[in-house]
Amino acid sequence: MEALYAITVGMLTACSVYLILRGRSFPIVIGITMLSYAVNLFLFSTGRLVINQIPIIGAADQYTDPLPQALVLTAIVIGFAMTAYSIILAVRVRGEWGSDEVNDTSPNDGEGNR
């Protein structure tokens, strides 16, 4: 189970890194979303993988760690809001610049302007 889990997290991360390095905002946003999935899975695994146990010490021989679950929940909430914001931002940039290329301006365009 650990190996499968690790491969999943690794694949997700690798794909997301590939997408984040693309030059257009849409694949980057997708990549970041994917990265947050990978991170959530990874965080979840830091309490070790345990099946069918309750998060209470002493109630059974084995227990599952509740803290990573709380961390994942926090990370999901924050990640969700951030993804929504970045999508809106990407759409706005697409509208204002007429292109979703992230880097195609010459650096001097901005001088003296806001």
Partner: peptide, 20 residues
């Protein structure tokens, strides 16, 4: 404004990756 939008997009995407 256009320039701010683009600068913010860079900033947001970088920091999202940073948060991960």
């Amino acid at each position: 404004g256009k320039l701010k939008l683009r600068a913010t997009l860079h900033y947001v995407l970088l920091n999202l990756a940073g948060s991960a």
